[in-house]
Simulated assay, not measured.
Amino acid sequence: MVFSKFKTYGELVMFSHTLFSLPFAIIGMIWAAKGLPSFETVFWILVALTGARNGANALNRWVDKDIDKKNPRTANRHMPKGIVNSLEVWGIIIICFGIFIFAAYKLNPLCFKLTPAALFLFFIYSYTKRFTWACHIVLGIACAGAPVGAWLAVTGKFAFAPFILGAVVALWVAGFDIIYGTQDIKFDRENNLFSIPAAFGLENALIISSVFHFIMIILLIALYFIMDLTWIYLVGIFISAVLLGVEHYIVSPSNEKKMKIASYNINQVISPIILLFTVLDTFIG
């Protein structure tokens, strides 16, 4: 019974999607430390990331519960179906954000001082689709906190490189979230919800997504020079660029299976590939 509940909560916050931001956080951590930081630092970075990410997802599910119930595509989610209630979800939110704040405190004073800014982004994102088509960009910025925060956790000070890496994450996430949002163009327009697909139409939205991902690759190449990396890193970027090309090629809003592959499955592979080749570059390059 307990295991079943935890499984349900994991599905609610889409725990498996931690793969999106975790690899970039590890990259930020490795670059900041020029190798591996202490075990304690690694531990608290992972704890902070897990708490922040899952708390933010639970919050988003609670904020969107009424919208999800009206949308045929999302009506089977846990809150619309009554599998979990608001009290349970708020319990998850409070526990996860509490873990995040405590982990930031254990890392260093700067990380702890920045927790209100991170929490503000998590809260504001959940409401953005009600007033701006830039919701995808706000989501990307919120996710960009993973590599930037990991860098700050190691060094305790700001630098240029982590913000470039953060911009990579922001553009990447915003790009594939736009693709995901193309499934709801009609619903969003009928319910006065905002998104780039609803505001600019399907074709223009896909062009914007492509531009975001193109700039993302340019920034990843720029990091090759900024961080003085080797050809190994570039191999990972090349593979990722090919995968992004495939992602945009197969997009089909009318085909739910293809959309899942394009917006989620491929992107769950991209970040681990970039991480793998970055690690190889750092330790054997």
Rank of each mutant, 00 (worst) to 15 (best):
G51K: 05
T74S: 15
R61N: 02
D66M: 03
L59R: 02
F43S: 13
N71Y: 11
K65A: 05
H78K: 15
L87I: 12
K65P: 03
I83W: 13
N76Q: 01
R53A: 04
T74N: 07
K69L: 13
G55W: 11
N71K: 05
I83N: 06
E88Y: 08
A48V: 01
N60L: 03
G55T: 05
N54R: 06
I83E: 14
R73E: 12
A58S: 15
V84W: 08
F43A: 12
A56K: 03
R53P: 02
G51A: 06
I83Q: 12
V84K: 09
I83T: 14
V84H: 04
G82V: 07
I83D: 10
A75Q: 04
R73H: 14
V63A: 14
A58H: 13
R73M: 09
D68W: 10
V47W: 00
N76W: 02
N85R: 06
H78D: 07
K70I: 13
N85S: 14
S86V: 14
G55F: 05
P72I: 06
V42S: 14
W62Q: 07
M79V: 14
F43K: 12
R61D: 03
A52I: 03
K69A: 15
P72T: 07
T50R: 04
A58I: 11
H78C: 04
E88M: 13
H78V: 02
E88G: 09
D68V: 09
M79L: 15
I45Q: 00
A75H: 01
A75F: 02
L59D: 06
N85W: 08
V63R: 13
K69G: 15
L46H: 08
I67L: 14
F43E: 06
A48W: 01
A52F: 01
A52E: 01
W62G: 07
L49C: 00
K70S: 14
S86Y: 13
L87A: 11
V84Q: 07
G51T: 01
V89Q: 08
A75S: 10
N60F: 05
D66R: 08
T50S: 09
T41N: 15
N54L: 15
K81T: 05
E88Q: 13
N54Y: 08
N60Q: 02
R77F: 05
W62F: 11
K81A: 05
I67V: 08
N57C: 07
N76V: 01
E88R: 09
V63L: 11
P72S: 04
N57K: 06
T41R: 13
N57Q: 04
W44P: 10
S86W: 14
D66N: 10
V47I: 02
G82T: 12
N54C: 03
R77C: 05
L49P: 00
T41E: 09
A58L: 13
M79T: 08
L87N: 10
G51Q: 03
V84I: 08
S86N: 12
K81N: 00
I67E: 15
K70V: 12
N57W: 03
P80A: 06
H78E: 09
N71E: 11
G51P: 03
E40M: 15
R73K: 03
H78T: 06
P72H: 05
K65F: 05
V84C: 09
P80C: 12
A52C: 04
N71M: 10
M79P: 14
I45F: 02
I67A: 12
V47R: 00
N57R: 07
L87Q: 14
V63S: 07
N60Y: 07
N76P: 01
V47A: 00
V42L: 15
P72L: 04
A56R: 10
D64N: 07
K70A: 14
